[in-house]
Design a protein around this nucleic acid. Sequence first.
DNA 1: GTACGTGCAAATATTTTGCAGCAGT
DNA 2: ACTGCTGCAAAATATTTGCACGTAC
Lengths: 140, 140
Amino acid sequence: MPFKLIRHRMTRQRQIILEVLRGTGVHPTADVIYEQVRKIMPQISLGTVYRNLRVLTENGEIQELSYGSSHSRFDGNPSDHYHFVCRECHAVADVNLPVMNKINTLAAEAVNGRVESHRLEIYGLCAGCCNNNLCAKDPD
Amino acid sequence: MPFKLIRHRMTRQRQIILEVLRGTGVHPTADVIYEQVRKIMPQISLGTVYRNLRVLTENGEIQELSYGSSHSRFDGNPSDHYHFVCRECHAVADVNLPVMNKINTLAAEAVNGRVESHRLEIYGLCAGCCNNNLCAKDPD
DNA sequence: GTACGTGCAAATATTTTGCAGCAGT
DNA sequence: ACTGCTGCAAAATATTTGCACGTAC
């Protein structure tokens, strides 16, 4: 038997992590999630947060986003959608733009292999950073 | 004077790193670049490779790509283009698809702030992994 | 009862940085 | 000569993991 079916359990830790992620509009990093969850369950460990984020991602209940280099961010909304990333404060927000399935069709002609999905990120300045006079200047 | 102009020097190390990046079709990680450069200049240090990758990225001479979580990859082609990422072997390849500027226009209407650019990644199975019978199965 | 999950702490992996001497312009 | 750059090694960051005990099912 090459594959073993793991029967995941819904522990209190996993449940709280999921609730925190679903209840926030920002797309927090693992340690921000850790801090949030600790307010509800102070004894949780960071390792548990990472393990659960992995399990939830593999289950398709949340999604992992990685922009810039360093740390990952997580999104409690598992459905396919696009993101906006602020080049100044690095905030990540959902973009209210329909998913363009046509991109997969177009890409399939240009790629040697099988196209399954795509990921689109919009970059720029968020409203907050824009108001800090940054929008007066040209982009770097 | 809030900004200081740094006058970068073209050292032999920087030059070799740039040549290695421009001479490869793959999009290598920092330590792969390090190994390549060491064949030409064995005494170079990993810290120098990281410092130069940063400077070159800031200068717009190369670009940094980050998919999945862990390590960054670098692309010796600084012009705007899209990438294909294999979900199995994580190889990254250029996609021969024109840049769709219209996406910025569309996004500008859906975003609160200033849209400057976008990044598009196509996901799927590369030709090699496809041939390993993986294309017979449905995606996970 | 079984075996997945947890907290803790140590281990990994990746990237950054302080420092004294080196080298591009 | 000025100041950025280098190699080295240590530090900082982010994430993973071994282990013994705990708990969902």
